[in-house]
């Protein structure tokens, strides 16, 4: 593929870079004082500053998750299988896909469920017929209620968390960081990375929020200590 796109075949490359370089001969205007463009605190219309959350990181994570209507369960590590079984049963999940690297003890006891263990080798089409997916989680961000999936063996490929309607995500407390700024000290990008912060949603019609468009419409987070 793409042998016909050698750089030498692309005169636009040279042209664009030359235009950019000649444009940069003009120095940008000094951005000026950092006071300009800052909202006057206390003036009408400016947000009243809310003091930073003083909650513990895990509690903050839970609060933010609930704020966007994810279902949250908090258990000990040993309590994961029971929590998973409870969710599968209460959500009437009949078929399940799990990534091959996920701890088997977490889902072995779920009972009468059609199970697909995905090792990423087959085609992605077909997962839309499966009700639910269980994954682990490389990293979670408390301030934003974000689950970070980075293609690890217990997270699987992207398609499995996209097509089923229920996503059950197991988050170990040691994976939870406080804010977004720490994210890339925890995860790399050699695999695709997906940040999930709530069930899929749209506000495109009269700004009314509708939960669930294309991704999973139900997000269940099991926080395990």
């Amino acid at each position: 593929m793409a042998n016909n796109h050698l750089r030498s075949d692309q005169p636009s490359r040279t042209k664009i870079l030359n235009l950019v370089r000649s444009g940069l001969l003009n120095k940008a205007m000094d951005p000026g004082s950092s006071m300009a463009g800052v909202a006057t605190r206390g003036a009408p219309g400016t947000p009243l500053w809310i003091a930073g959350h003083d909650l513990e990181t895990v509690d903050l994570f839970e609060e933010v998750l609930k704020d966007y209507k994810a279902r949250v369960l908090r258990v000990d590590i040993e309590g994961i299988p029971a929590a998973v079984a409870e969710v599968i049963s209460s959500c009437h999940i009949k078929s399940l896909v799990v990534p091959s690297g996920l701890d088997r003890t977490w889902y072995e006891g779920v009972g009468q469920v059609q199970l697909v263990v995905d090792d990423g080798s087959g085609p992605a089409v077909g997962f839309e017929k499966i009700d639910g997916v269980i994954t682990g989680c490389s990293c979670a961000i408390a301030e934003t209620g974000t689950l970070v999936l980075s293609g690890r063996p217990d997270e699987g490929r992207r398609a499995i968390t996209l097509l089923p309607d229920f996503h059950i995500c197991i988050v170990k407390t040691e994976a939870i960081i406080r804010g977004v700024s720490e994210l890339f000290s925890r995860i790399g990008v050699s695999n695709p990375v997906t940040l999930i912060s709530g069930p899929s949603a749209t506000s495109d019609i009269e700004l009314k929020r509708v939960e669930g468009v294309h991704g999973p419409r139900n997000l269940i987070v099991v926080i395990a200590t």
Binding site: M35, A36, V38, T40, G42, A43
Partner: peptide, 9 residues
């Protein structure tokens, strides 16, 4: 006065 000079108070 509000947004350039930051005079409100």
């Amino acid at each position: 006065s509000l947004r350039s000079l930051h005079i409100y108070e």
